[in-house]
Design a protein around this nucleic acid. Structure first.
Length: 433
RNA sequence: GCCCCUGUCGUCUAGCCCGGUCCAGGACAUCGCCCUUUCACGGCGGCAACACGGGUUCAAAUCCCGUCGGGGGCGCCA
């Protein structure tokens, strides 16, 4: 049997991280078995649905690396069909009209049972289920009904969805029966919870894919983190791409327990992907973040940003961390961290810096090895530790006590800039800014 | 209230289906050491869990029952 699954977003907001995970698992399932991954837009709520949300959702799916087959199905264009199907059920005596609405009659005394792909056998008594609305008074279809009509229409073979739909399943199975359709296989995956164990919501931080994108997370990292939340490849390996996951994905191996969202683990994944990413992929993204942080990139080309990137690549967890660490590479009037001023005002340090500035002049080309050699020789000659030279110079040149290797920084900054900054401190003019 | 799902380190998980190889393995976080011009990376090591109580069994994280805990649902929302 051809595997056909679907992801059915409602365009009433941005793509939620939990929905994204549902989409990823459906995609994984479809690709794993050579099936089709379809999209259905559940826009029956005309008031809350907006075209811009739909565009955002599709954009975010593509960004994550999820592609789909066939044209998306829009529920708003199928109202006539839902009504007709409901009328058929009324004619067959399986449903009845109540006011303007159409309700489904639930036969009492039955047991509805099915085998969940993730949870195993699950059963309900129809006595616990009341009659279900098929068509609302305003003529629009109720969720469970349009869902079944469309899944039947689209030839959906497997439904992988959130745990919160588990109690919709017996109702939907009843509809399949009434409509003369064979129910698909169902698999209910546990929801993602916030760090405190409650439902993941805005107060836990980002809930939409778009926010993570904006915060500087790479799509590969987000996808990787998401499909490892609830599923494990079994082997002790965690960094794997969607393509690698496709080869070994197995729904039956999915966990039946809800998992908490852990931003720290996501950050770790992101850092790992940043370490491995190609510079050509990172540089444009970094440029955007630098611009957003207010940097003037007029005199910085991609090659320069690339050199700075290589100095900070292992130090950032998100692309957004970058601007805050590299200010000194993009402007002379960078901020000097708290406590740094004292280091620069120290007369002894100024003397050391002035001395270094003079000696650095003769270094050409201004490479980090040559600069380091000079620092070490100078320290030895003066009988001090290299660190006593390095720390004040790092502060003079970058305004920070932390960062990449000083000599590499100096090389990237260039001789001219370095000397300008050293002289500025040597002459005690650093505090005018 | 009723119905359903679920319970291994702080977190994500492996193991559970096919009891013994598990005084429970990995990863994130955390702590320490090493590397080192700082920070980070990397390397090494530490702390840390089978929710609880009963069974079954020679033997249970693994099977059964109960309790407690967590989540979801019970909409003319989707």
């Amino acid at each position: 049997m051809m595997v056909r699954v679907r992801f059915a977003p409602s365009p009433t907001g941005f793509l939620h991280i939990g929905s994204a995970r549902t989409a990823v698992f459906n995609w994984l399932f479809a690709r794993r078995y050579g099936g089709r991954f379809l999209l259905r837009i559940e826009d029956t709520d005309q008031k809350r649905s907006e075209a811009r949300y739909l565009e955002e959702i599709l954009k975010d799916l593509r960004w994550l690396g999820i592609d789909w087959d066939e044209e998306p199905v829009f529920q708003s264009r199928r109202f006539d069909i839902y009504r007709a199907k409901a009328e058929d059920l009324v004619a067959a005596g399986k449903a009845y009209r109540e006011g303007e609405a159409v309700l489904f009659r639930v036969e009492k005394g039955r047991t509805i049972e099915y085998k969940d792909m993730i949870h195993g056998p699950i059963a309900w008594q129809t006595d616990d289920i009341k009659d279900q609305v098929l068509i609302k008074s305003d003529g629009s279809p109720a969720y469970n009904f349009s869902c079944v009509v469309d899944d039947g229409f689209m030839g959906i073979s497997h439904i992988l969805r959130g745990d919160d739909h588990i109690s919709n399943t017996p109702k939907q199975i009843l509809f399949y029966e009434a409509l003369g359709l064979r129910p698909p296989e169902f698999g209910h995956m546990p929801l993602i919870l916030g760090p405190d164990g409650s439902k993941l919501s805005k107060r836990h931080g980002g809930v939409s894919v778009e926010e993570y994108k904006r915060e500087g997370f790479l799509p590969q990292a987000l996808a990787n983190y998401l499909f490892l939340l609830g599923w494990s490849p079994g082997e002790e390996r965690e960094i794997l791409s969607l393509e690698e996951a496709v080869k070994i994905f197995d729904v039956a191996a999915m966990n039946a327990v809800q998992a908490k969202f852990d931003i720290q683990k996501l950050s770790w994944f992101n850092a790992e992907y940043i370490k491995k990413a190609g510079a050509d992929e990172l540089i444009p993204l970094l440029g955007i973040h630098l611009l957003e942080a207010g940097f003037d990139l007029a005199s910085s080309d991609d090659a320069y940003i690339g050199r700075v990137l290589e100095l900070y690549r292992v130090r950032i967890k998100t692309l957004r961390d970058f601007p805050a660490m590299v200010e000194c590479f993009f402007r002379d009037d960078f901020a000097v961290e708290e406590g740094g001023r004292a280091l620069l005002d120290d007369p002894g340090n100024r003397e050391l810096i002035a001395d270094l500035a003079v000696r650095l002049e003769s270094i050409d080309p201004f490479g980090h090895e040559a600069v380091e050699k000079l620092f070490r020789e100078r320290a030895a000659e003066r009988g001090i530790k290299p660190a006593q030279l390095i720390h004040p110079v790092r502060m003079a040149v970058s305004g920070r006590s932390k960062g990449a290797g000083l000599f590499e920084m100096m090389e990237v900054l260039g001789k001219e800039t370095v000397l300008r900054r050293l002289r500025r401190v040597a002459h005690g003019s650093a505090d005018k800014a």
